Amino acid sequence: MRISFVKMHGLGNDFAILDGRDGDLPLLGEAQIRALADRNRGIGFDQLIVLGPSETADFAMRIHNADGGEVEACGNATRAVGVLHGAEASIETTGGMVQVRPGTSMAEAAMGAGRFEWQDIPLAYAMDTREMPLGWDMLERPSAVNVGNPHIVFFVDDLRAVPLETLGPEIETDPLFPQRINVNVAQILSRDSIRLRVWERGAGLTLACGTGACATATVAYRQGLVDSVVQVTLPGGTLTIRHDDEGGIHMAGPASETYRGSFELDDFG
């Protein structure tokens, strides 16, 4: 079976998007997704995005990381799908309903409100998530939030001094996080500016993570460190995160198409 795809990216966080909104796509297994994600022998991507029909929204979006595992939310992919769709839309995800409003090469996504209860992250046991009495080497006293998927956020004085490539996988797989966790290390530059690096669950170090930017800005806003609108700069570029009066998180930034292609499913297991 030959399957068409669209390759897109948001700030370098890249996706292969399969459009199954007419319901004719087969279900891909984890081994097939890992093979497709291979940057030397496959398409190469951080996430595989599968669009499908929905009874409650304009369409549904399922998200698989490069390791084949399914995750609940992806902010950069939401913007990319919005640009691809070309019109305002409601999107059903396993992490909840999101709204996207695209422009020509930009999009704003309404990601809902952050959840801070320990069982919503989830954690393995009860704990105050505002300032957790934990540490991994130089990273200490983080906060946790679920913005459709789970995140832990550390604020540091010098982002460059953190060996996230080694601490990221250690924290991601800590038994405290039964569903693993996305690891964000951030430096507050001003009331409206944050620098951020992210170790993404199931994908590793990434040029950009939209939900990581949302999570970090939300935690910083909750703690009074930033204003309601903040620029979050990642290695791949900058996103604007805005908090509304009801606690909703809105993320705006670029997304663009790279190329289109197709593959023979049997070639990937």
Score class of each variant (00 low, 15 high):
V232L: 09
A80C: 15
R62Q: 11
T216D: 08
R197M: 11
T218P: 05
W118C: 09
R101E: 14
G12N: 04
G224Y: 10
G82K: 05
I91M: 07
A87Q: 15
M61Q: 05
Q99L: 14
P254F: 09
G135W: 14
L205V: 08
T216R: 04
G247A: 09
F177A: 02
V230S: 07
C209N: 06
T206M: 08
D266G: 13
D137T: 12
E200H: 02
T240Y: 03
T56P: 02
Q223F: 07
V6I: 15
S262V: 02
L123F: 13
D22E: 14
F154N: 01
V226L: 06
R130C: 13
L123P: 00
I43M: 02
F268E: 02
V145E: 00
V219K: 03
S193F: 11
E72Q: 13
D244M: 10
R21S: 00
L225P: 08
L51I: 01
N65H: 05
M111T: 11
D244N: 11
I194D: 01
G247L: 09
A77F: 01
D192L: 09
D137Q: 15
Q47T: 04
A126D: 15
A126N: 11
M97D: 09
Y125L: 12
R260W: 07
R34M: 10
L234H: 01
E30A: 13
R160D: 15
P122N: 06
M97V: 12
G202D: 05
A66S: 15
V226P: 05
E70F: 02
A77L: 08
Q231D: 13
R41V: 08
L18E: 00
A110D: 14
D58S: 03
A161P: 00
V162H: 03
T216E: 07
A217D: 02
D267I: 09
A252Q: 15
G42C: 02
F155I: 10
G148T: 04
R195C: 09
A80V: 05
T233H: 06
V6G: 03
E70S: 11
A213P: 03
A252M: 12
D158Q: 10
G52K: 00
G20V: 00
P175G: 09
V156C: 04
L51C: 04
P169G: 05
R79A: 11
D46V: 01
L265K: 14
T56W: 04
L189G: 13
R191G: 11
P178W: 06
V198M: 06
A89D: 10
L234F: 03
D128I: 10
V153T: 12
L27G: 12
N146E: 07
A109T: 15
G103Y: 10
G224N: 10
L159R: 03
S105K: 14
I43N: 00
S90K: 12
P163S: 11
F45M: 01
D267P: 10
R195K: 12
A213D: 07
A80F: 06
D22C: 05
E172T: 06
L189P: 01
I43C: 03
H151M: 10
S256L: 13
S54V: 00
D192T: 13
G68V: 04
V153Y: 01
T104H: 08
T104N: 14
A66F: 02
